[in-house]
Structures are given as structure tokens and as C-alpha cells.
Simulated scan of single mutants.
Amino acid sequence: MAQMGLALGYHDVSIFVSLTSIWGFFGRIVSGLASEYYIGKCGTPRPLWNAAAEVLMALGFIAMASALPGSFYIGSILVGMGYGVLLTITVPVSSELFGLKYYGLLYNILILNLPLGSFLFSGLLAGLLYDAQATSTSGGGTTCVGPHCYMLVFVIMAIACMLGLALDMLLAFRTKNVYAKIYESKNHTTTT
């Protein structure tokens, strides 16, 4: 986020890292409370919350790609919130669908997305596309300044989020019976 902010001409880039972290926290808190409430209230499948997070993140990446004044702030907030939701909802979904017998293994496989995604999208994709846009400097290095430096990265990330949205919707549809049973069990325990 800091390097992207610098490429867009912002001088104080720590704000973008802070916004992403702070709103990631709020995404975790709100999605945890809301998903628990709605699964007990009407049996809403948790993967729908992941789908909502994918929409937030796609909108955030599109905002960043637009490079309009203030859009990087909005994008940082939306991406942070979506990321917080994904981190919170994915783990309970795995335990609800696969049980708790191999919870530790499943949790670690799910958390593998953090270093793997960072390597693939930040290290490889963003690095390669940035280098393709960068120009040589007098000191022997390369630099890129302007919205074109990361625009394609943001567009690709938004497309990846749309693919995630489609997969989350498919998962929600395919698991609606599981969540109907969870809903029934929650309502049965509160009435007895």
C-alpha cells in the first residue's frame, strides 16, 4: 500500500496502511456479529458474507484503479473491510462444512492464503507489472510515478474478486441445506 501510494503521488503513505488495518478490524467485528446473528435468525449461509466481502474488495480495487482524488483512501477502506470479513468468515465456514476433527489442519490450509496471496499478487503480479511500467533513473534504479503504475494490478485484483464472488455464491447455494440444519438446531435449542 505504501509503494502504491507513493506511485500515486501521496507523501504520507502510512495512512493507507492504517486505513486498511483499522477497517479490517471493523470488518472482522461486524461480520462475526452479523453472520452469527443472521445464521440464527434466518439461516443465512455464511459464504454469502464472503461474497459480500468480495464485492467490497472489487469496488475498492476499482476505486484505486480509477486514481480519482481521494479514491485511494476509499479503496483502502473497502479492501481492508472486505479482507477483515474474509479472514473472519472463512474459518467458521470450514468448521461448519467439514467438522472439527481436522480443524487445525483446515485452519492452517486456509491461512496459507496470506503468504501465498502476498507472494502471487504482491510479489509477482504487482512487481512484474510495476517493473514493466517503470523507467530508469539516473541512480541506476527504476521508478514509476502515476496511476498507470498499478492500474492493471487493481483491475486484475477486481477480476479475481469477481471470480471469488461467483465461487462464494456457488458455495452458498450448494450448502444452503447445511445452514438450514444449523438454523433449525439453533432455534431448537433456544425453544427447549
Score class of each variant (00 low, 15 high):
Ser14Asn: 15
Gly40Asp: 09
Glu36Pro: 00
Val79Ala: 08
Leu129Lys: 05
Gly99Ile: 10
Gly24Leu: 13
Val85Tyr: 04
Gly9Leu: 09
Gly5Lys: 12
Leu114His: 07
Ala34Cys: 04
Leu105Cys: 05
Tyr179Thr: 06
Pro69Gly: 08
Ala2Ile: 12
Ser94Trp: 06
Tyr73Cys: 01
Leu97Glu: 12
Phe119Tyr: 15
Ser138Phe: 05
Ser138Pro: 01
Ser118Lys: 05
Gly75Ala: 05
Phe72Ala: 06
Ala180His: 12
Thr90Cys: 08
Val153Pro: 01
Ala132Glu: 03
Phe154Tyr: 15
Phe16Thr: 08
Ala172Thr: 08
Pro147Ser: 15
Ala63Glu: 08
Lys176Glu: 09
Leu97Asn: 12
Leu56Gly: 03
Gly164Arg: 07
Thr90Asp: 03
Thr191Val: 09
Thr88Arg: 02
Gly32Tyr: 08
Trp49Leu: 05
Ser18His: 05
Leu56Ser: 13
Ile182Asp: 01
Thr44Asp: 04
Thr175Lys: 04
Leu114Met: 13
Leu120Thr: 09
Leu112Ile: 01
Tyr107Lys: 07
Thr191Ile: 11
Glu54Ile: 00
Leu86Thr: 06
Glu36Met: 13
Ile62Tyr: 09
Tyr102Ile: 05
Gln3Gly: 13
Thr143Met: 10
Val145Asn: 09
Ala63Tyr: 02
Ser136Met: 11
Ile159Thr: 13
Gly99Asp: 04
Tyr73Arg: 06
Ala166Asp: 04
Thr20Val: 11
Met151Thr: 15
Ala180Arg: 15
Val178Met: 00
Ile182Trp: 01
Phe61Pro: 06
Leu120Pro: 02
Val91Pro: 04
Ile74Asn: 00
Ile77Arg: 01
